[in-house]
Nucleic acid binder design. Structure first.
Lengths: 140, 140
DNA sequence: TGCAATTATATTGTGTGCAATATAAAAAAT
DNA sequence: ATTTTTTATATTGCACACAATATAATTGCA
């Protein structure tokens, strides 16, 4: 009878360890452009569509204001994004890229390929992880 | 030409989001026995082999003393583990389960099955994630 | 033996994550 | 038009992660 409380039999531990490990592999590359991994994710959202509300960013990254507000303030301090209260709806804060934020995309462009090479991961493996993640995350 | 800086094309983001999501699904169950997810992982290591050093635990969970020392102190305060300096080698701190820590295993026993059911994940999917994780993590 | 290098843990500081709560604005209901 | 409810963001508090550094004990080597 398999012991489900053994680490080797866990579902989440490999995900948790792998996710931290890959973020570590990103670090040297992200250090060069002065970003943390979550900050890089936020910028990826903005590079795809500039000017989004805190809510929209949080919805895409599954992060709440408790995480995003201080993160966005740090990006604002680094002059990478602007935070502006909407005049139409005063509750909303709109986040947009500065020129520096826009330029960062060029410097970040090479990072994903480098990672894939360093990790020696195949496209099938990436797709496999993504399809499992999509299935579970969409249950929400 | 696929934009590798799009969130949809990321390798790590699904892992990062899925790992956080699953830890959230654990929360209500772990709340009942007063543990966080990383604390639960430490206990799983100790349930399998009682009395291990901080180093041994850290090696299995890929966590360093900066994370483990305060976490273990919290487990000690809750009287779930003991922390004792080895008399043979004064640098080493040995972590062992208290009776309360041993008893917790019974209460935790049902958690993994519940999670697998709630997530509606198959054994193939679990194995697939684990084999990819093992491959990348063993490169270290 | 004596001293340099290594090892094990602890500490400090920064940046997440996230629950719980607060605040203020907008929308809905009466 | 008020009141109630909902919505968007911010704040607080706690627990990780992890880099960098510190400290003390042990090992290895000249």
């Amino acid at each position: 009878m398999k012991d489900l409380l053994k680490l080797d039999n866990q579902l989440c531990f490999p995900l948790y360890a792998l996710s931290r490990e890959i973020i570590q592999r990103y670090r040297p590359h992200l250090d060069e452009i002065g970003l943390t991994y979550p900050q890089y994710l936020v910028l990826m959202v903005l590079w795809e569509n500039d000017k989004q509300t805190v809510n929209q960013i949080g919805h895409k990254l599954l992060l709440d204001s408790g995480t995003l507000t201080p993160l966005l303030k740090r990006l604002e301090q680094k002059q990478i994004v602007l935070r502006q209260r909407s005049t139409v709806d005063e509750r909303v804060v709109e986040i947009s890229l500065t020129n520096m934020g826009i330029d960062l995309k060029k410097k970040a462009k090479c990072i994903p390929e480098k990672l894939i090479q360093e990790l020696e991961i195949t496209q099938e493996e990436i797709d496999s992880i993504r399809s499992i993640a999509d299935k579970i995350l969409k249950l929400k």
